[in-house]
Design a protein around this nucleic acid. Sequence first.
DNA 1: GTCTATAGATAGATAGAC
DNA 2: GTCTATCTATCTATAGAC
Lengths: 262, 262
Amino acid sequence: MASAGRREVILAESARLFSERGIAATTIREIGDAVGLNSGTLYHYFSSKDAIVSEILVCFLTDLVERYDAVVAEPETARTRLGRIVRVSLEVADMHPYATEIYQNEFANLSTLPRYTEIAAAVESSHDAWFNVVEDGVRDGEFNSGVDIFEFQRMMRECVFMSVRWHRKTLAQDVDSLTETLTTVFLNGFVPAPQPGSTPPPPPTGRRRAAKKTATEPPAPRGSAKSTEAAASSDDIRAELDSLRTELRAIREAIAERPDAG
Amino acid sequence: MASAGRREVILAESARLFSERGIAATTIREIGDAVGLNSGTLYHYFSSKDAIVSEILVCFLTDLVERYDAVVAEPETARTRLGRIVRVSLEVADMHPYATEIYQNEFANLSTLPRYTEIAAAVESSHDAWFNVVEDGVRDGEFNSGVDIFEFQRMMRECVFMSVRWHRKTLAQDVDSLTETLTTVFLNGFVPAPQPGSTPPPPPTGRRRAAKKTATEPPAPRGSAKSTEAAASSDDIRAELDSLRTELRAIREAIAERPDAG
DNA sequence: GTCTATAGATAGATAGAC
DNA sequence: GTCTATCTATCTATAGAC
């Protein structure tokens, strides 16, 4: 009877244990204890321990890809869509509180899982969503191409999912501020010009860590050396930098306008 | 006699296996096979499997903290010191190719390790180095406080160590470009104001990364990840000048080689 | 559906010959 | 220092009573 929700309870408790202790370190008996069932009974619902892992990941990734696909297709600017991807990532992670951590911790060693092909395909699809939106933004001039596209989107994507771990306990409440922080940190370093209208808001000033100085040294010494030696030639260098940038831009545009430009 | 380097070989092979398969999934017998010793012989060098794990992590973290402490004490701007922390992180990671991955993958579940207190203290010390430098930069107005300090430095720190994993095979050659990319992405989104003198170049639209698929392996990071904003120190500016010159030269040559050029 | 009991495999670690 | 041999513990998964 209770078998209706039993499967889901097993999945939920397993996910929690897997993320807390690791998959290999979590035993079937521990899962049984957490659910309130004998370990043998679990095999009435799942054919193996790995099958539980696979189902956890497939459920999470299916939800994620489905919502990514909707966002990517939106007729919005790349910045808007990228912000939505961040938000969707956090929301889906909130619906699957432990799956993202399991995936992050152990994906590298999960290639022998039952439905691994399905899982890998979903992972790749989710990665494509990020890449395509960032690529669109660069092509349209909305983002800066001074930083390698692939490198950038991978950093941002992984940072978003690490943030899930860091904010797991309060993720639902933190979605807004986290989305804002992530897009501000990454995009204000990635857009060509600063937004005149939307300058970064006054500090949300979240938590402050009890910053203890390292036992050896009080790191006071940042000091006056700021721009002393660089000051003399600084203007000349900046001038040359600007001219180089201008020339580079002209050349790039010339190349881009060529009919057979690649 | 061979016992001189044996310990180090055991540590190296163990680290490789632990990072590839996970600690729990790596058996003593596999380590013995990899080293060319019987599994029982390993206990002549280490008291347990966990003792091997601990020694791997302690060696890595000791090197890291030692070099962090030197950087934090430098009389430089926060931006310079933060850049040095990034570089030092990559260099130490290159000296301990697998320790960072082991730490990232399994640190959450390692609290029962033999020398865990020592390990945790080193981890905290390394975190403090990052926090203190970023905090200094904010206090002096060099960085922007519109984003939560703790959140920012944690994102940047974790991104640096994830980059180690992504570039593990070519880390030594990629240190320069990676340091540049990481500081550009994070700091240009974290500095208070853009340089008024130089309007950032509009998007070139020309070069696009060819491979968007492949969830497995990023293409080689050609060092085109260059900053668009003027850097704070003369070293950074000179480095950018050099890279711009190099890129200009490459573009000129590419144009000259086109059959229909001129 | 849930349990008890256990099969079958393999892990970490030890003892002692050489 | 290295080996063979083995102990002890524990795991996944199964068989069958209820």
